[in-house]
Amino acid sequence: ALHLVPVADGSDMMGSLRNPAAFNNIIGFRPTQGRVPFDDAADLFFDQLGYEGPMGRSVRDTALLLSVQAGRDARAPLSLPGDGSEFRAPLARDFKGTRLGWLGNLGGYLAMEREVLPLCEKALGNFQALGCTVENAELGFSPERLWECWRSLRHWALANSLGKAYQDPAKREWLKPEACWEVENGLRLSAGDVFQAAASRSDWYRAINRLFERYDYLLLPSAQVFPFDKQTHWPTEIAGHSMDTYHRWMEVVVPGTLSGCPIANVQAGFNAQGLPMGVQIIGRHQADFAVLQLAHAYEQVSQWFARVPAPVLAGAR
């Protein structure tokens, strides 16, 4: 955002290519599971919550970085075929008649700061300007079940990745309380618990596929709160609703994560205090290029990054 680098790579387990992108008025893209090969893990088959992906100031730059990252790699058994060259193709496309489903706050389930929904709903007009139709959509799946599925799978994954450090008293003292909480909950899970969580995730994949029978893309806010003071450990309350875990304030990214589908964050605009927000564009499984095409078209209409650069840069002009 400050033009220090043209693009950046990152990983996204709970929105880390989407939420920070929204908070910095840039593009973030979480690819389809397996699009970017990753073999730097003890388990190459079951732990499939977090993926590598790109960020950039424009969709074109983001797609170009993905063209370098993506491709089949024999060291990553679940990586998808291809060499990434498709992401260097022109992004322009006609979107007249494209059907978009707006999931909003999941029918009132998600707590959100006051200006988040109105700002994102105003941004939907940019999709309509492209000729898309935007309808209010229902998740068609229990969000509570999604959250419990997420918690179990994340507990399990972090108990395994942080387990050795937790078991070493000298290293455990360097783990923050939230990390210890994840490990401790993970150690309480049975094999049956993990299987049931995986089954719930599979049922959610079936449910989102049914949504894609009606809609070409799904839309959600990229965050439930606007950027907050760096001294805030994490938001403990949103609009009068207490957050019962350290990551509940980011629950809006969980449906996308658990779907394994490609997701782009695009800029939605700014609140009265000048703080940015984003919108998630979720596409069908393996339709990564199509998601980037819609994000590019939206970018051409909205021009949010070009119109509202970082305040530090604006002051330097």
Rank of each mutant, 00 (worst) to 15 (best):
1 A>G: 15
1 A>M: 14
9 D>H: 14
11 S>V: 10
13 M>R: 04
17 L>M: 06
18 R>T: 04
20 P>W: 14
20 P>E: 10
24 N>F: 07
35 R>Y: 07
36 V>T: 11
37 P>H: 05
43 D>A: 13
46 F>V: 11
48 Q>T: 14
52 E>F: 14
56 G>R: 14
57 R>Q: 06
57 R>N: 09
58 S>G: 00
69 Q>R: 02
69 Q>P: 01
72 R>W: 12
72 R>D: 00
80 L>G: 06
85 S>V: 10
86 E>G: 11
86 E>A: 15
93 R>C: 01
93 R>L: 07
96 K>V: 05
97 G>P: 04
101 G>D: 03
106 L>D: 01
106 L>P: 00
107 G>D: 03
107 G>A: 02
112 M>A: 11
114 R>G: 04
115 E>D: 15
117 L>S: 01
118 P>H: 08
118 P>N: 07
120 C>D: 05
120 C>M: 04
121 E>H: 08
126 N>T: 03
128 Q>C: 08
128 Q>V: 13
129 A>R: 15
130 L>I: 05
133 T>G: 09
133 T>F: 02
134 V>Q: 08
135 E>N: 11
138 E>H: 10
142 S>E: 09
144 E>K: 15
148 E>K: 13
149 C>D: 07
149 C>S: 15
153 L>I: 10
154 R>E: 03
154 R>P: 00
165 A>R: 14
168 D>Q: 10
172 R>C: 07
174 W>I: 09
175 L>H: 00
176 K>G: 05
176 K>Q: 12
176 K>C: 06
177 P>R: 06
186 G>E: 03
187 L>N: 14
188 R>M: 08
189 L>W: 06
191 A>E: 12
192 G>L: 14
193 D>V: 09
194 V>D: 07
201 R>I: 03
204 W>I: 10
204 W>R: 00
209 N>Y: 03
210 R>Q: 09
213 E>C: 06
216 D>Y: 07
222 S>V: 01
222 S>R: 06
223 A>K: 04
224 Q>T: 06
227 P>A: 05
238 I>C: 00
239 A>V: 01
240 G>D: 02
244 D>A: 05
246 Y>L: 01
251 E>Y: 07
261 C>Q: 09
262 P>R: 04
271 N>P: 06
272 A>T: 13
273 Q>N: 11
273 Q>Y: 14
277 M>S: 12
278 G>Y: 02
285 H>A: 14
286 Q>F: 01
290 A>D: 10
294 L>G: 00
295 A>F: 05
296 H>D: 08
296 H>C: 01
298 Y>E: 01
302 S>V: 03
303 Q>A: 15
308 V>S: 06
309 P>K: 06
312 V>K: 08
315 G>P: 03
